[in-house]
Design a protein around this nucleic acid. Sequence first.
DNA 1: GAGCACTGC
Length: 658
Amino acid sequence: MRTHSGPIAEGSKPTLSMKEQRERLPIAQGRDALIREIRENDVTVLVGETGSEIPQYLLEAGIAGDGMIAVTQPRKVAATSLATRVATEQGVALGSLVGYSVRFDEASSSSTRIKYVTDGMLVRELLSDEALSKYSVIIIDEAHERTLRTDLLLANLKTIQKKRNGDPEGSRSSRTGKEKARVERRNPLKVVIMSATLDAEKFSKYYGNAKVFQADYVDSAMRTFFQIHIDQTPGDVLIFLPGQEDIENLEKTIQLFAKRLPAQTPGVAIYPMYAALPPSQQSAIFLPAPHGMRKCILATNIAETSITIPGIKYVIDTGKCKEKRYLSRDSGTGFDTLLTKDITQSSAMQRAGRAGREGPGFCFRLFTEDAYHSMPLSAEPEIRRVTLTSSLLQLKCLGQDLETLEFIDKPDPDSIASALSTLYLLGALDDTKSLTPLGRQMAHFPLEPSYARALLASFSHSCPSDVISLLSVLSTSSKLYVDTTSNREEAAESRRKFRAGSGDHVTLLNVLRAYEEVKEQVKGKERKEWCKAQFLNERCLNEALEIRSQLRGVCERFQLDWRDSVGEQKQGGDEAILQSMLAGLVNQAAFLQADGSYKQIMGPETIKIHPSSSLCDKKVPAIIYDELVYTSHIYARGVSAISRSALQELAVFRRRET
DNA sequence: GAGCACTGC
């Protein structure tokens, strides 16, 4: 196993529109932060970047002033080919704005601002100009290779910076103060060290704890991929990314750049992989890539443990993942967060181990060794991360308690308070925190307590059959709607016919009703076609039907007749179903505010309706929702409109709470 | 204007 990172050695096919293209790519996103970092620091250590983009950024941002930017490379061929590539990207002739200088070969002129040189060449220049005064920025690429000439250069640059930039700690006060310091800084030198991950800290310490800048991980994943693609032997590549959005972005950029590779370079076959991907596309990753192409899989941590993809030779690990975590409120109105975080050490090892199961393998980690050591060893136990409502109800049935039971890791007191509050609101616990008969009955259903409560409430609204069907769909483990960003519009359009005015809950019910009709009328293959045409996951629908018969079975055991249904009566029917749901979703309700956002009825948060909801952009006085997830905003998902009269029923709960 | 992965009943 080897960890390293470096430049894309070969250039792309000359295309004048490339610069334009590049600017429209997501690559440009991390750029501003990077510029700021270099502007503010005399020395910057850059991790996971390569020497082709940075000098162009710096020049465009005016950081080089009137001086030149030198980019050093350990090898001549890299210096010349990078210069060629960058000149092409800038749309200029080689040797004008962008040039190079290596032994026996030079392409530069008085107008040259970015010059690619071998490190040996720059060492030689020291002999004629000790301060390297014509350069205002020197970028040391491939610093981790630690060639003798690079090390010589690094030592000299330290001295040169003291002379040209002034010594921040030492001599400034002993001289004539401010004026002298200003004079000294007239031609300051910026040093940018591009290094592979593991060595970054060493360079930083050498330069008095210089700032280490971690490049954007999607961007560096792309660069690392092309470096492998161009420099390394054939073999499949697996890239770990946190989520669907990053995967889709990276897929686009790789595809764009792959098109511009020289004709002799093999093509790239990209396979995205994440749980929400339609099953047919998921299975594609197990097929061999088309002849002569390199297979590149972009995956979430689904490829870390759940699935094993054979034949992976190279792994690129961004070191990031998404983590779902419950943020408790003792009122029970907390919400889930779904944010990008650093992975754990065990996860990093697991990811590295995905390479080379059938032969030698390589892992390229886009994080430093220090970063690795500051990662937690392993994931925090679930008891610390998730809502405990369901477990608390079960413990209560066993005569036990979250507060008194001795756990390996104690649950968070807020989380316990949140669970207690929710169960009390649902009527599962009384005001002495004791289990009620209702609570015991709820616990018999294999459902979240809120859904169990909704199920039981449906009997008084004469619609248990409908609510049980709905809850079955809500309880499935897989996703019902299968769509990706590209076909999202089309998928939404084809499912429009299921849409209910009241919102997502009855819409789901309509989908299941429609599937049942189709199931009665047509056979397997046609049924499959039907699901595909509506962008529905048939496995999910069948799972829902299984759950439904289980739930009906539980009802029967308790002599509850589940057959009542609102049937086809539209208006009143929806109302009855949502009234039942409301009984379970008591603290999952919000009301409309003047600015169009919604505010939790029992909690403090302002929330938005998730864009995937049929009620998104619709203004209704009040809503109930299945879940609240904080990503870029606090989004409510699975949303239905509730009436004012329903809202009044909530007021009863609120009074009881106080 | 947008979803990490599991599991159990």
